[in-house]
Computed example of a mutant assay.
Amino acid sequence: MVIASEISPSRPAALANWLSVVAGMVVLIVMVGGITRLTESGLSITQWDPVSGILPPLSEKAWQAEFAEYRQTPEFIYEAGPAGMTLSDFKFIFFWEWFHRVIGRLIGLAFALPLAWFWLKGAIPKGYKPRLVALLALGGLQGAFGWLMVRSGLSGQMTDVSHFWLSVHLLTALFTLGGLVWTALDLRALARNPAARPARLTGLATATAFVLFIQLLLGAWVAGLNAGHAAYDWPLMNGMLVPEFDTSRGAVWALTHDPFLLHFLHRWWAWVAVGMLIWLARRVRQLDRRASKAVHTAFGIQIILGIATVMTGVSLWVAVAHQLVGALLVAATAWAMHVAGSTTERLA
Rank of each mutant, 00 (worst) to 15 (best):
V2W: 09
A4Q: 15
P9R: 08
A13E: 13
L19K: 07
G24N: 05
G34C: 08
G34A: 13
T39S: 14
T46F: 02
T46P: 06
A65F: 03
T73W: 04
D89M: 06
D89H: 13
F92V: 14
E97S: 08
R101D: 05
F111L: 14
F111E: 10
L115C: 06
A116C: 09
G122A: 09
P125S: 05
P125Y: 03
Y128H: 11
K129L: 14
L135H: 04
A137N: 00
A144G: 12
Q157S: 12
Q157H: 12
H163F: 06
L166Q: 11
S167Q: 05
L180I: 08
A191G: 12
N193G: 00
P194C: 10
R200S: 13
R200A: 15
A205I: 00
A207G: 14
I214P: 04
L218T: 13
A220V: 08
H229R: 13
Y232S: 15
M240W: 05
M240V: 01
E244T: 12
S248C: 01
P259R: 07
P259W: 01
A270K: 02
W271I: 09
V274P: 00
L277E: 11
L277H: 07
L280S: 02
R290I: 07
S292E: 13
K293R: 14
L305F: 12
I307D: 02
G326I: 04
A327G: 15
L329M: 14
T333F: 01
R346S: 13
L347H: 07
